[in-house]
């Protein structure tokens, strides 16, 4: 692992509090994920790829914006790995970079229909931009 990869990996592990080594690769997280079909990389792959230092691939994948934070994988993981937290950490690492907002406030306002609740707008603001 080069230094950049090492730093990214350490950051992801530190801020998520996830220990990917606890994973037994059973795939239950991916078996339960409602966004599975929308994701290029699936929850179990997040765990494995972070462990192997392939974080940039994940940061540059739209998969990070498809996690619903529904906590189903966190709840059902038999090893207590909490994949959802790792997805969140990688997403934050992406949007915290300069000019790396997935969508800005105007984009969000533009695509929102007239019925969306404030809760959705606020959630999108938090998930898509810094």
């Amino acid at each position: 692992m080069n230094n950049r990869v090492k730093t990214l990996t350490e950051t992801a592990l530190l801020i998520s509090g996830v220990n990917p080594k606890k994973c037994m690769k059973c795939g239950k997280c991916s078996g339960t994920c409602p966004s599975y079909d929308k994701m290029e990389y699936h929850p179990h792959q997040f765990v494995s790829m972070v462990e192997k230092g392939q974080i940039e691939k994940l940061m540059n994948s739209a998969s990070i914006y498809y996690c619903l934070s529904c906590m189903a994988c966190v709840e059902r993981c038999p090893r207590g790995v909490e994949p959802g937290k790792l997805v969140e950490a990688v997403r934050l690492m992406k949007i915290r970079q300069q000019d790396a907002n997935h969508k800005n406030g105007n984009d969000i306002a533009r695509i929102a229909d007239e019925n969306v609740p404030q809760q959705l707008l606020m959630a999108a603001m938090r998930k898509y931009r810094k």
Binding site: P34, S35, D37, K38, Y65, Y66, L68, S69, C70, A72, K103, I108, I111, A112, V116, L120, L121, A123, A124, K127
Partner: peptide
């Protein structure tokens, strides 16, 4: 007790539709 599709509906309605 499953997810409704949440905020992802903003960007991709089909995600919420499936759920």
């Amino acid at each position: 007790n499953e997810c409704c599709g949440a905020y992802v509906a903003l960007e991709d309605k089909s995600a919420a539709e499936t759920q």
